[in-house]
Write a protein that binds this DNA or RNA. Structure first.
Lengths: 193, 193, 193, 193
DNA sequence: GATGAATGAGGATTCATTCAT
DNA sequence: AATGAATGAATCCTCATTCAT
């Protein structure tokens, strides 16, 4: 089935180049023509490879989640302690700030209208969430679900702030005071986090 | 004298009832017709009271920020310690979760396309931000700007999570582990936070 | 009937101040609100004095034609020869160029959609045309109807040109070569013009 | 390859059929729907071929100016003397009176709001004016710029008159008395006109 | 596979006019 | 007499999608 492989390969190549377009204008305001032009194909071709704008978006999000969590996973591979892993993860997020914010923004815009039921049934979203959960649980080693959400919240909140706060602080600064707090918490509540 | 309408008063009344419509569909997908229907007036009337959809939105956001920070301020008035105030604030956010998320969502959607320069120049936004900053600084007493951002990030991040995470934790749970962390931080770094 | 006199007087005062508004934007693009604002009254008041936008316009055009032809008539009163009267008339048109063009423009815009039949039946227009015909026939003394139209055409054409030709010539220049032509014509075809 | 349409060719064909619609209602009051219906396409298709109503209009005016001056040019090709050429030109204008008036009307309506600066910068308009200037200068042979404007004024003025004067004279009649005048003028002021 | 022409419902906004006060 | 709130049809334009070639 060589034809199918080629088809799929080309589809993935197109997908990657859609991100910047979506990121610049947001999902809703990105038009199929804009995508087609950025990809230097016709809208007809776009519809040959994807059934709809929605499908493009969902496939893109999923592909990115796979690549991103793999990248972060690799980065944390050599680290020994949770503290070191956490620090490395924070550094990673700080380094990829712009990209992370764009991604979060698109995520939020796209899924905002979904009911909890629809959210729970969305296959693409669930695969994506599982990726990130595994990353935190296995990759970093945070096993306390509340701490896990706290850390993730800080990152998402920090990314969000920069959207409407012109003078927000850096993640490094946040991590500087959060690190000791977490360390203290971990010491107190045994080591099972 | 024309019909019995106090122009400005009626304008504010209309404004309040716009929130739910914007909240349900988001800023971009809310149409003037939807707003008019929800308000039980004609689109023409809407344009009699507001120059544009944008203006409706910005006026709404500002009015809400005023009312919200006043409400929270009042709630914190009797509290003695920072710890108590923080706890009360978190309880407030938890209680108004749905509303807070809708607001944040609209905020983020609306301001995402703005450049930092435009953000810094947006009069409405700046008035809103100042409201919240004062609330944290004076109302709660958090004077360390990094801690201030950390706390705000946790709240915003928590609100954000619930958009795409069907099974996120409650703010109460986050506060339960964050409270001791912050208390420890405050003890260590003197009392000037 | 003093009330009616006051009413009518106020109506005429309002009318005069409408010209600049119509002249700036054209008949169609001038809104009742613009007129009301320029006149410092409400739209309701406008409708108290005039039945419609159309009526305002027609009454205005007629009032202006009366005033204008009276003014030109007075200016030509002392002149002895046709040549002198023509020259004075041309000077008058050159002096009032801007005003004349605005008037012509409004005229043309307003009456363009009319059929010849409607034109012939429009009472206001007919009164206006009679004003100008009398001016040329009696005031200036041009009795040859073709010459009369030729001269009027030159003036209207000159006014028209300046609308889309950035570098049109002055009426003075046109008159300079037209004068001798007309004089020659008059000499040749006896003096009955 | 898509449907069998030579884009540019079809665009020009659409353009031609827009004139009557614009001519009937004027630029401002012609709606895109009216144009689309007259052309038997959807509004969407109209926007596929033209970026805006303005663009349709400007392209139309330019295309017409090209075709018209070419037609008149061809008509004058065989004439020997200026007098003959002038007469032929006047006959041409008389023959195309209705069309000429419609065109002038649209011209005037469209360009009336423009400032001299905007007029001078309007690329489409400048190309059109150059067409007509060349026609008069080279095609007819009128080299005296004032005479050139005088003649053009007579034509434009005559066209204008018929808009609001139900009983205007024919161009033939005007030409009958204007011809000898011009001839006399030319004799007197040598042959360099 | 690839193209781009074609669609038409739906978007924000405008405006002459009416009428209760 | 005077006001200005209220209307809603109509404006230009956009865009995801379909489909003939």
């Amino acid at each position: 089935m060589p034809k199918i492989v080629e088809h799929d390969q080309y589809r993935r190549a197109l997908l990657r180049r859609c991100f910047d377009v979506f990121a610049e204008h947001g999902y809703a305001k990105t038009t199929m023509r804009q995508l087609a032009e950025a990809l230097e194909v016709s809208t007809g071709t776009l519809y040959h490879y994807f059934p709809s704008k929605q499908a493009i978006f969902e496939q893109l999000m999923e592909q990115m989640a796979q690549e991103d969590s793999a990248a972060l996973d690799a980065e944390l591979a050599g680290m020994a302690t949770i503290e070191a892993k956490l620090e490395a993860a924070m550094a990673f997020f700080e380094r990829t700030e712009e990209y992370g914010r764009k991604q979060l923004l698109l995520f939020v815009e796209y899924y905002r209208g979904f009911s909890p039921g629809e959210l729970a049934q969305d296959a693409a979203l669930n695969r994506i969430i599982r990726q990130y959960e595994q990353l935190f649980f296995d990759g970093i080693g945070v096993r306390d679900p509340v701490l896990f959400h706290l850390l993730w919240s800080v990152v998402d909140g920090w990314l969000t702030h920069r959207i409407y706060l012109p003078h927000a602080v850096s993640l490094r600064d946040l991590a500087a005071i959060l690190g000791p707090m977490v360390a203290g918490y971990l010491r107190t509540y045994s080591g099972d986090l």
